[in-house]
Every structure is written in C-alpha cells, then in structure tokens.
Computed example of a mutant assay.
Amino acid sequence: MLGLLQGAWRYRHFITSSIRNEFVTRFARSRIGGAWVIIHPLSMVLIYALILSAVLSAKLPGIDNQYAYAIYLTAGMLGWTLFHEMLNRCLGIFIENGNLMKKMVFPKIALPIIITGSSLINNVILFAVILIVFAVLGHFVPLALIWVPILTAVCVLFALGLGLTLGILNVFLRDIGQVMPIVLQFLFWFTPVVYPVSIVPPALQGWLAFNPLYHLITAYQSVLVYGQAPSLKGVAIVALLGAILLAFGFILFRKASPEMVDAL
C-alpha cells in the first residue's frame, strides 16, 4: 500500500492537472458552466420538496419552518450525491481508461484519486451553495462548518473503498457494472434521504441500521437540519467499514493490477 501511495505522490502533478483539466473540459462548451454541478441535485430537492411539502402537506417533526422538507432533503442529498458520484465513476474508471493505461506509464491508482479530487470539488461547491440557500431561508447551522468536513471525509473513505473494490472486479466481471445502478436505486430508497426515519414502521427501523449510508445520511441531517452533533457510533461504524474496504481494495488492486491491462 505504501508503494502505491509513493507512486501516486511522484505523479502528483499529473493528478492535479488531470483534476483541473477534467473540471474545465466538463463545462467547456456549456453556457452556464459549473452551475450544472448544483442544478441537478437541487432540482431533485425542489421536486421532492414540492411534492411532499405542498402537494401532500407533509410535516417534518422538530423543524418549525415552512421550507422544512427542502432543508431536510438538501441535507441528505449533500451526502448521497458525493457517495453516488464517486461510486458510479469508480465502477467504470479502469474500463473507460483502458486505452490510456495501455499507452501511458503512470500508477493506475492515480485514476481513483483523480475521481476523488474531482468529486470533492463538486461537493464543496454544492455545500457552499447550500449554506447560501439555508441563509436565505433563515436556517443557520454553525455546527455545519465543523462536522460537514468530517462527514465528507468519512463519505469519501467509504465510497472510495467500495468503488475501488467494485471497479477492479468490474474489469473481470462486467455484470457488476450492469447490476450496480439497480442496487443503487434500491439503496437510495432504503436510505432516509427523502423521508424521515420516524415514518418507517418500528418493525422495519431496525433493518435500516444494517445500511451504512443510513448512519452517514442521518449524520448529515442531524448537523444540517437539527443543528446537533451526529451519532459518533454511527459515524465510526461507517469510517471503520470504509477503512476495511479501502485496505481490501488496495490489496486487490495490487494483485490484479498486472492482469487488468490484459483483461481490458
């Protein structure tokens, strides 16, 4: 693992320039540029907030604000968007860059690092916009500046560990890339992003604890919605699981790396 990290450090300029070029190229021909980073998640929040708050007249316990559901959904989407983007991109990172891996000599571990940097930039922009929106809505959360960076680090650890592992396996077993979008759909609705945990029947609430994203997303909601510190136990569980997955991913990468180029 140390050797992989040393190789990535030697190519740090390649990594940083790749992150910058990816961000610039992504919006090179777009008239509104980087605004698309925030338009997609915020549009989903707007749709769900309109349906749940206005159409269904839903109420959110513990928040005395007419925009309560918009605030709740935005908090959940901040964590989910980062996880979803990193996992989705890691799934195909080695397959999509197969030609680059064959033509250039560079540490292949740089590819998921580039994805991590790019996803973090998008998430930081989204977080800054969310703070502005909250301020406009009269919702102030001082704890956000302390806890959100910590939760972001845990989310990155978990998403990168899972994404790296699945991305390597996807090179040799392409069915993984086909089935994961379906799994993510189920996982989204099995995670309290668009609904509060209180509406889930008590008999089913226990099952949510087996979902690592449940602990992560509720931590985001505790901080951004209720202005409370998250459950340290839940955050620690996700961090530990992420560390185990990342270590396993590095081991798997080291063993499979010589064969990946041939498989591609």
Rank of each mutant, 00 (worst) to 15 (best):
4 L>F: 14
10 R>Q: 14
12 R>P: 07
13 H>D: 15
14 F>N: 07
19 I>Q: 06
20 R>G: 11
20 R>L: 14
28 A>N: 12
45 V>G: 00
45 V>Q: 00
56 L>A: 14
70 A>P: 05
76 G>W: 02
84 H>T: 11
86 M>R: 04
89 R>G: 00
91 L>P: 05
93 I>S: 06
94 F>L: 00
95 I>W: 01
97 N>C: 10
102 K>S: 11
106 F>H: 10
106 F>Y: 07
115 I>Q: 09
117 G>M: 07
123 N>A: 15
126 L>Y: 15
127 F>Y: 14
128 A>K: 00
130 I>D: 11
132 I>M: 07
138 G>N: 06
139 H>E: 06
141 V>D: 04
148 V>P: 10
153 A>P: 12
156 V>P: 01
156 V>I: 13
160 L>P: 04
168 I>K: 07
169 L>A: 12
172 F>H: 08
177 G>H: 08
179 V>H: 03
181 P>W: 02
182 I>E: 10
189 W>C: 05
190 F>A: 15
191 T>R: 08
200 V>K: 10
210 F>I: 14
213 L>F: 00
213 L>C: 02
213 L>I: 09
214 Y>M: 06
215 H>M: 07
217 I>S: 03
217 I>Q: 04
220 Y>G: 02
224 L>T: 03
224 L>Q: 06
228 Q>A: 09
231 S>C: 09
234 G>C: 07
239 A>F: 03
246 L>P: 03
250 F>C: 12
251 I>V: 14
251 I>K: 14
253 F>H: 12
255 K>M: 11
258 P>C: 05
260 M>G: 08
263 A>G: 03
